[in-house]
Every structure is written in structure tokens, then in C-alpha cells.
Design a protein around this nucleic acid. Structure first.
Length: 571
DNA sequence: GCCGTTTTCGGCCCGACTGTTTTCAGTCG
């Protein structure tokens, strides 16, 4: 488990207290920037600290680096302790209430002695908030509602779920013939792994009609804003959806602006300023003249940049690369020629091998690997050697049948045991076309043990791919403790490919890991790990993640024709 | 507090919406 979330929380709290105390706004912003950076960091901030490289994180300079170091080594930060003593309130808890900001927190603390959710709720229920200057009955009601939202611990939503919710809203809105254009923006468009809220942009002949339809859609549980260009609702599922109406001649500018992320946009604006231009959500202007903004590409072009795919817009070097014509040509879904990790009902899959093959054939794949679990994973009905040998014969027969045009590859997802040995004998492994090894047990091993265990497994001359290398389940289980640099090094030595597991809940490796792996010259396999036929569709999420990791077609072995793919993994 | 194609000082994005204001402050993205 990385320290990133903890460190981000500490920095956020410091930022909030500084704002509370009325400190220099840009100092506050500096902390907020660092929080964003560290939350989105591809690797463990503790590793960067070990390497004494914290200031390589955008927005982290000497001062904040010291804060992080102090926290990581002692578990405490002096300045934060002082702030907490001076202002004894649960500032993070209060700030988590939608509609409540620092000014309100300060007001209720100073006037009513409110220090946490409970005391705020009590004050609201006793009708004390509405008596305060600047607040009224409506605000008080809003706060009462907001406290419930904060309590429900409103978390993020998987990309796949957010996309499906957004698509449902799109379908409902598209019934309005007033709508000319509709796109998803924000983190959905950047294809982040998880989504905070859903941003939808439309261009329409009758914005008012669109807005009133939007705020009355089924599933809308509350409306927090309803204006002419912006409306905001919360669905019964808890997720917030923002809809914005943009003018036709500024649609590209709005799309660029609302795609973000904020750090990317800030840097873009600075570039505009240096050219004597002004960039905002309505367009790119020279004086009063709009010189770009109808479409996004015009904005980037006018600023002297190549078009930056949304997945890269996180201020992680893409702007500089775009200035120098060095953006990667990112992989696309159509580049994928096969899936190298899938299950059947012989282990814990839900479909027969024939059903899986039919579904894979529909994808137009050139090859497809069947890789069921092995014996240690009893809960998944893992295969032992004799069943695996039968499976090998079965696939030979299926290949010979000619029913499927694609090549069916004989594989297995072999368990890595406690010492890094594998749970299938070498003489059986040697008969498989493709061996993926994965950790499914003892995930709480300490970093050293886990790293040695995985590295040892990679030394087997029958291993081709390391499956879901960090074992995380988004929003559910952290990655296990492992030194990925060492694993990558071992993979490099032993010609082992890293899996990018495309399951929406895994997306393992993450974008930062992928960049690090390919920088070391490793190859990646994007695999669905499908347990039933419809999960073969998860390939798209793997490709999104690959794009976020700056991967090109050449980085990914399952874009290769069969022969080249097989020779690439050959030991 | 951070940062550099106005580079070691002096900037740092800004507009929509709401509720409470009778001209604007707070929050959000």
C-alpha cells in the first residue's frame, strides 16, 4: 500500500488550516497543487522520499518536501500539530461537506464554537446557523443535507460504472432534438480509473429546455444548481452530474477547458499569456478577437502544440512533448490482435471454452489464450497437472477442428507460491504456449518477502507474463507491498512481459507504473482476464489505461501478429 | 510555497451559480 493517500491528506489538512488562518492565498494554492500531484502519482511517494527525489513531483519544492519527509519518518508534522492546537477543529471533516468552505467553517467556529460534524449538525437543527450574518434558512437546510452526504462517505466511482451512468443520461437527453452536440468531459474523457463526478457538455438550440429536462431526469435525487449554462444534480446513486451548455463557436474551447485537468489548463493558459493571448472557456483571444475555439485542435495548434489526446492531459510532460513534436502515437483498441489471459468454467469462469472462443472470434482476434487457474487456488477450482494435460489435448483438438479461424493458445494462470515457486511442474509448464504467473495468496507479505517471491517466480524459464502485478482492486483493496523497480529489473533480465490487467476494478498496472516499465524497455500485454464472454469487452478499459501510460502499439505484445508475438515472449 | 520561452523575483485562471446581499461573498470546478 502506498503512502500517497496519507501524505495527500496531511498536506490537504495543512492547506485548509493555512486558509483558515488567512495566510497568503498562493501558499494555500501551493499546498492544494501538491495534494493533486501526489494523489495522482504513479508510484509510492515513500519511494521518491527514499531516493531523495520528492522535488521531482510537480508542485513539491523544498518546503513541502520537508513536510513529507517529516511525516514519513516520524509520522508527525510539527507545523500541522501547531495548527491543530491553535485551531482545535476537525477541519477535514467539515470541509468534506458540499457547499461548506473555509469561510463558513470559520464563521460557525467563531460565532457558535462548532468544531466538527456533530456540533455543526446540532447548531443547524437548533436553527442557529440561519441567524448568522451571510447565512439564511436555505443555506442551513443545504448544510443539513450536506452533512448526510459527507457522512455517507461519498467516494469515487469506477470509470466503467461512471461511463455507463453517463451513457444512460446521454440516451435520455439525446431524445431532445434541440441538442446538436453532446460529449463527456472531465475525468471521464481523460479516462481516469475512478471518477469523482460526471461532466457533460452540450451545444443546443434551446439551452433552457435542455436544462429543465436535465434536472428532472429519472434518478435525479437533488438539484444543487439550475442555471442557463450550468446545472448540477445528484443522482440517487450518489454521484454528481454537471451539465453545461456551450455556444457552437466556443464548443472546442469549452471542451478543452472542462476536460482539464486543472494543472494542464493552468500551464496552457500561461503559454497563451506568453504569446500575448488569453485562453478561457470561451476561446483563445488576441485582444478582443477570438482566434480559436470552435474546435479543440485549433487551440492547441494556435498555441504551437501538437494535439494532446485527453488521456495525457495531466501536466505530466505532455505539454512539453507537444511543443517539441514528441508526443507518442498512442495505442488504439483496433490495434489489439488477441487476448492472452482468460478463464472458462473449468476453473472459476462462467462460460465453456467453446462459448469463450466464439465470443473472442467475434472480436476478430488473430489469437486467443485460454489460461485457467491452477491447483493452489482451490476456491476457483484450479487445475492440477493431469487436468492441465487434458486441457492441452483439448485445445489441440479445437485448433484442428477448424471451427475457429484464430489460433487458440494453450495457457494457464499459475499461482506463485509462498517462496516464489510455481504450483505446476516444469514438464507440464513446458507444454504450454504461454504461462502467466500471479499472486493470489498471502497478499499481506511484507515488501521484501513479496518482492523476492515475485522475482524468484520470474526466474523460471517457463514464465512469460506476470499477471496483475500489484494485486489491487480499485476502491476496495490496496496494491500489495512490492518493490516494482526490482520486479521490473527481474522481468527485464528474464524476458518477462508485464500484464496490464484490463478489468475495470484492477487496471493493474497503473499509468505511472506503465510509463516506468516501458522506460525500462519492458513489454506489456493488455489482457481482460475475462471470466465470462461479456468481459472480453473490458479490453477497451485496458487500452484507455495504456494510453494514460503513454503506451504505443509497439509497447504492447498483443498488437503484434501471432508469429512476432510468440517470438517476443520466447525464452 | 512553487517555479522559470518576461527565470532567482514576482507572478500565480477565472467565470457560473446560489443565497444573501441591495451590489456581493462563498463555493465550486
Amino acid at each position: 500500500m502506498t503512502k500517497n493517500a496519507e501524505v495527500a491528506r496531511v498536506l490537504k489538512e495543512i492547506g485548509l488550516f493555512l486558509e483558515f488562518e488567512g495566510k497568503e492565498p498562493f501558499k494555500v494554492k501551493a499546498y492544494q497543487r501538491a495534494v493533486r500531484s501526489i494523489s495522482a502519482l504513479g508510484e509510492d511517494v515513500a519511494n521518491l522520499a527514499d531516493r531523495d527525489d520528492l522535488t521531482s513531483i510537480p508542485g513539491v519544492g523544498k518546503g513541502i518536501a520537508e513536510v513529507i519527509k517529516s511525516y514519513l519518518t516520524t509520522g508527525n508534522v510539527g507545523v500541522l500539530d501547531e495548527l491543530r492546537t491553535r485551531v482545535p477543529i476537525k477541519i477535514m471533516e467539515l470541509d468534506a461537506i458540499p457547499g461548506v468552505g473555509i469561510k463558513t467553517i470559520k464563521l460557525v467556529y467563531e460565532k457558535l464554537g462548532v468544531t466538527d460534524l456533530e456540533s455543526l449538525e446540532k447548531a443547524a437543527n437548533e436553527d442557529k446557523l440561519s441567524k448568522l450574518p451571510g447565512l439564511g434558512l436555505k443555506t442551513q437546510d443545504q448544510i443539513i443535507e450536506g452533512i448526510q452526504v459527507a457522512r455517507s462517505g461519498l467516494s469515487r466511482t469506477l470509470l466503467a460504472d461512471a461511463l455507463s451512468i453517463a451513457t444512460d443520461i446521454e440516451t435520455q437527453l439525446r431524445k431532445l432534438h434541440e441538442i446538436n452536440q453532446l460529449v463527456f468531459a472531465g475525468s471521464i474523457r481523460r479516462r481516469r480509473e475512478t471518477i469523482g463526478d460526471i461532466d457533460i457538455l452540450v451545444e443546443a438550440t434551446d439551452p433552457k429546455q435542455v436544462m429543465s429536462t436535465f434536472v428532472t431526469l429519472r434518478d435525479v435525487s437533488s438539484v444543487s444548481a439550475h442555471g442557463e449554462t450550468k446545472s448540477s444534480v445528484r443522482l440517487s446513486s450518489g454521484i454528481q452530474v454537471d451539465l453545461r451548455v456551450l455556444p457552437k463557436d466556443g464548443f472546442g474551447a469549452g471542451l478543452q477547458y472542462f476536460t482539464g485537468n486543472v494543472d494542464h489548463n493552468v500551464k496552457l493558459r500561461a503559454i497563451a499569456q506568453k504569446k500575448g493571448l488569453r485562453l478561457n472557456e470561451y476561446g483563445l483571444f488576441r485582444g478582443e478577437d477570438k482566434i480559436a475555439g470552435t474546435d479543440e485542435s485549433g487551440i492547441y495548434k494556435t498555441l504551437g502544440l501538437d494535439f494532446i489526446p485527453p488521456e495525457l492531459r495531466e501536466d505530466k510532460g505532455e505539454i512539453e512533448a507537444a511543443q517539441n513534436g514528441q508526443l507518442p502515437h498512442l495505442i488504439e483498441l483496433k490495434d489489439i490482435r488477441g487476448d492472452l489471459h482468460s478463464h472458462t468454467d473449468q476453473s472459476d469462469g462462467k462460460n465453456t471454452i467453446e462459448e469463450m472462443l466464439d465470443a473472442a472470434q467475434m472480436k476478430g482476434y488473430e489469437y486467443y489464450c485460454v489460461s485457467d487457474h491452477t491447483q493452489s487456488l482451490t476456491i476457483a477450482n484450479g487445475m492440477d497437472e493431469s487436468r492441465l494435460l487434458q486441457r492441452i489435448e483439448e485445445i489441440d483438438t479445437l485448433n484442428a477442428s477448424g471451427r475457429w479461424k484464430m489460433k487458440i493458445l494453450k495457457g494457464a494462470e499459475v499461482d506463485i507460491l509462498s517462496e516464489g515457486s510455481l504450483d505446476i511442474k516444469d514438464e507440464v509448464l513446458s507444454q504450454l504456449d504461454l504461462v502467466t504467473v500471479s499472486i493470489h495468496s498471502r497478499m499481506k507479505d511484507n515488501k521484501k518477502t513479496m518482492t523476492e517471491r515475485v522475482c524468484h517466480a520470474l526466474e523460471s524459464k517457463y514464465v512469460h507474463i506476470l499477471g496483475h502485478p500489484t494485486g489491487r482492486l480499485l476502491l476496495k483493496r490496496s496494491e500489495f507491498e512490492i518493490d516494482l523497480d526490482a520486479v521490473f529489473e527481474s522481468a527485464k533480465q528474464n524476458n518477462v512481459v508485464m500484464e496490464l490487467n484490463a478489468h475495470p476494478q484492477r487496471l493493474d498496472l497503473n499509468a505511472g507504473n506503465l510509463r516506468a516499465a516501458t522506460r525500462m524497455g519492458l513489454k506489456i500485454a493488455i489482457n481482460t482476464d475475462a471470466h465470462w464472454t461479456t468481459e472480453l469487452d473490458h479490453m477497451q478499459f485496458g487500452v484507455y489505461q495504456a494510453r494514460r501510460g503513454w503506451l504505443t502499439k509497439n509497447d504492447v505484445i498483443n498488437t503484434y501478429p501471432l508469429k512476432k508475438m510468440m517470438s517476443t515472449i520466447k525464452k
